[in-house]
Amino acid sequence: MALNEREEEYIQRYIDGDMDESEKEKFHTYIKENPECAHRLQELKRTVTIVQGTSHVWAPETFTDSIMKELPKKRKRKAWKSWSRQHPVLVAVSMFIVLMASSVLFAWNDQSGAEMTVTGDRENVNIDYDNKAVIIPEDETVQGDLTVRNGEVDVHGNVNGDLTVINGEPYMASAGSVSGNIEEVDQVLEWIWYHTKRISQEAWHMDDDEAA
């Protein structure tokens, strides 16, 4: 059942749909008179139908997951990253709050229950570490601010500045005097407030210094 080259070519072109109407007509007429050609056409058409009708195969269920596992890790987009890129101010603010809170709380935990500390002019005061008390004798004057942590303060003399008592209590004798403010800090919240005030005051003073 050998067909000539021309016939084979026509059949292929016909199957490919590459013939115009007049060519098709001629082809149909030709086919009717040449059963071998008609037979070949049928066979080829059937072949195509069978190949086209082959069941499709599907990728295994785990396919996507196993690809995702193989992808390089570092290019993985982090939701947090893109969010933070869009809200830099919020990130900065929350970072600041977290850092501030943790440092203040750390400082609070650090000093509560710890030894008494006295900062300022220590020369003219009696410091009693055993009883956790600081006494400013009647005829003495403390120059500048005095800060006492974890202890009581008995003021019989004078303080030329602010007196701050952290985690303790100030007692004022009638003869005693403090020229600045007396501040008592013994709650965590107050402690935070105290720090905030101090930091803002420092910032304020820094402004003053720069202006000066």
Partner: peptide
């Protein structure tokens, strides 16, 4: 940016 979620959709 190498969006892997988008790539997963393409794979699917």
């Amino acid at each position: 940016d190498g969006d892997q979620d988008a790539f997963r959709e393409l794979v699917d």
